[in-house]
Simulated scan of single mutants.
Amino acid sequence: MRTRTLVITLVLFCLALFAAAFVYYDRPQSTDEPAVVEKTPLVRDYSPVIGPEDAPVTIVEFFDPSCEGCRAMHPYVKQI
């Protein structure tokens, strides 16, 4: 009976520790510094471009021909 109580206590302690760590790491980081925005554009001078340059939205496709998912989505991205 004593061993069972010890095991239950340890399990509850581990669960409480895990929950506390989750709450601690999940909280938003409040800083007064603005977010850093990368200033290097994804579209380079040598990038193939379709459509007007002043479009309000830019879609950048990272395509790997050996990737099965990339090959499957390629026709849909081109259609967009």
Rank of each mutant, 00 (worst) to 15 (best):
E61V: 05
D54T: 01
R71G: 04
Y46C: 03
C14F: 14
T9N: 07
P65W: 10
D64H: 05
Q79D: 15
L6F: 09
R4C: 10
F22T: 03
A20P: 13
Y76A: 03
V36W: 13
T5H: 05
I50N: 03
M73K: 09
D54E: 07
L12S: 07
P52H: 07
V49T: 04
G69T: 10
V11H: 04
A21D: 14
I8M: 09
T5R: 08
I59Q: 06
L42H: 03
D64A: 06
C67R: 01
V7Y: 02
R71W: 00
D45P: 06
V7F: 11
A19I: 01
I8W: 11
T31E: 13
C70R: 13
A21Q: 13
A35C: 10
L6Y: 00
F13M: 13
V43C: 15
V77R: 01
Y24I: 00
R44S: 09
P28A: 09
E68Q: 07
R2L: 12
E53H: 11
E53R: 09
V37M: 13
V49Q: 14
A20E: 11
I50R: 03
R2T: 09
L15D: 07
C14I: 15
Y46V: 10
L6T: 06
T40G: 10
M1H: 12
T9L: 14
M73A: 15
D64I: 03
T3H: 06
L15M: 13
E61H: 07
R4L: 11
S47A: 11
D45L: 13
E53Y: 11
E68K: 06
C67F: 08
V36C: 05
P28V: 01
S30C: 14
M73W: 09
I59P: 04
P28F: 08
R27C: 02
G69M: 14
K39Q: 13
V36D: 10
L10A: 13
Q29W: 08
Y46E: 14
F22G: 03
V57N: 07
V37K: 12
I80G: 02
M73P: 08
G69N: 12
Y25Q: 14
V77T: 02
A35D: 12
E38P: 00
A55C: 05
P34N: 08
